[in-house]
Design a protein around this nucleic acid. Sequence first.
DNA 1: TCATATTATTAAATATATTTACAATTTAAA
DNA 2: TTTAAATTGTAAATATATTTAATAATATGA
Lengths: 338, 338
Amino acid sequence: MENNKVSIYDIAKYLGLSPATVSYVINGVDKVSEATKQKVLKAIDELGYVPNYTARTLSTGKSHLIGILLPLDDASIAFLQNPFYVEFIGGFEKGMLGYNYDLVIGVTKTQDDLKEWVLRRDLDGLVIIGTCPKNIYSELKRLNIPIVLIDDYSDDANAFNNISSNDEQGMYLATRYLINSGHKNIGFIGKPESYLIDMRRFEGYKKAMEEDHLEIKDDNIYRINATFNDGYEIGEELINKKELTAIVCSADILAIGIMKKIKELGYDVPKDLSIMGYDDISYANFVYPGLSTIRQDISEKGSRAAEILIDKLENDRRGKVTINMEPVLVIRESVKGK
Amino acid sequence: MENNKVSIYDIAKYLGLSPATVSYVINGVDKVSEATKQKVLKAIDELGYVPNYTARTLSTGKSHLIGILLPLDDASIAFLQNPFYVEFIGGFEKGMLGYNYDLVIGVTKTQDDLKEWVLRRDLDGLVIIGTCPKNIYSELKRLNIPIVLIDDYSDDANAFNNISSNDEQGMYLATRYLINSGHKNIGFIGKPESYLIDMRRFEGYKKAMEEDHLEIKDDNIYRINATFNDGYEIGEELINKKELTAIVCSADILAIGIMKKIKELGYDVPKDLSIMGYDDISYANFVYPGLSTIRQDISEKGSRAAEILIDKLENDRRGKVTINMEPVLVIRESVKGK
DNA sequence: TCATATTATTAAATATATTTACAATTTAAA
DNA sequence: TTTAAATTGTAAATATATTTAATAATATGA
């Protein structure tokens, strides 16, 4: 094998030392005299040595690789239309700063692939975004590496490190803001029966409504998927329902779709309908009028995920961590007082 | 080292064969009788053997890891507000399907880090998005692995595999569409002197204007960065310049910022100003009115990048590949005939 | 000074898969 | 039946870093 790479053997030979001594210096093992250490450090610099993580992994069993699973399947591709992933990854890398871990992306990994993927690469840890297929959790447990689930609201997820947002509180804030602005007939847009995240948000809506003894009418609940198109398509029905003065949406992208249709039909937001979004994606501010919404700090989620993994891996910490992040009300122009 | 993982040694011992034979079966080396092969395959299945890529990498020198460099620094974070990266990665993974490569994300890698990063992980290939710091190219060459540059319009980039869009043609299409719609006084929004990509787009604008003997006035060129905020801030100036009837923007996000300000001021798009974007990010369709723009197929860029790398790595293909993708005019509602 | 303790260094084993060089066996050809 | 050729298989070397156990060198105390 032609190979110009410098190994600890080269350095050892160059200095007339053994590879072990060089390894000790590199790893800061306090077994080497100061003089020898300096010589080794100098040689590393001179020869341009770069540690080979592959060999290190083989030897230590730690790859310093962390897998991140993005669900890129058809069902969730719409979800990608918001910059969630990149923001998350940015935050994650920030949290990893100073620790030599690399992030391996897994897209379209089915549960069959998943286990093999983790094993063959000796992945040290795993971050999974979104709810997993039901039957994968026992498999995950068996992998025996730290795993952080992001926004997985299933019961199974409770057995893992877990970062999510307090969605009930978030939607409570949204609904309360509408109520406090004088609205009484408030619609809910989302699929509480299909998606756990929507269920939790529905609970917040319900709590606010019941607090003020406002009626929750089932035909004010519009069960559609969280995509622009689904919002766009329901827009006409919403604007034509005159008793409805405001809606809360379980996703900004939905609200943006609804808003677009309403304006195409010649109506005005918020005059003809007040709209609350959820997520505070950047485009919530970019559309006109600016969408009032609930912010969850995605980048923060990323760095918290990194911290959890680092703590597990570097300090061999046991036990599971659950973080429920508090959402914040963001007021722009899509809601009008009544 | 407590270790429950199954190696080819375990399989070899289990069957009374040598590890080499097992390796041959796994790698399809035609040196093993059908009978032995079947026995080995059966044992692999029974014992749940998963090949260890770390050991394989050490032995073969090929890591089957490809690095992707996302520029997450301050200057480009605004660029992230469009879903470019995830769409690109999605396309890339699609192109990689069936080949066992994994994608390692490098964010915030400075050029110092970069070389070490590639070496220590034995990266087989590299994808770099956006223009690199000037002095990094010679370093890249020395890495001696296939590299694909995406949307790098610097001269240095010519020495590498290269995927970009025909931006001149794209902006030509945009400008021509405005001219054909009857506009004569057309502004250009972008920074042709600072960004190579904007320079190329400016060339297309110029070509269309000169073709019809329309004057390019320097005070119709607005040199701002491609962010929502910069667009938003220039909006008022643009709408107040009454002789201007249309503008071409070097990025959708810019056009969206301009549009928002104009509407906040009570003006109408396209009645008071016709606007062309560039990129066709999903939000070009989500805003009201829908933004007419130029589409570049990002996902396609990703899969082409994957194909180039695969071809180099699997077939040991030499030479560099240059792909210039053709843009497409997308007509929505932000342009009005005069 | 000798024995013991401490520090510094090395040889060898380990982690796992691949590959080269070679040995053994079988088949085909002479 | 030999010889040659092809097939099937193995032992050992290799890739690189870590780590254990052992040894060598030095220092300390009696």
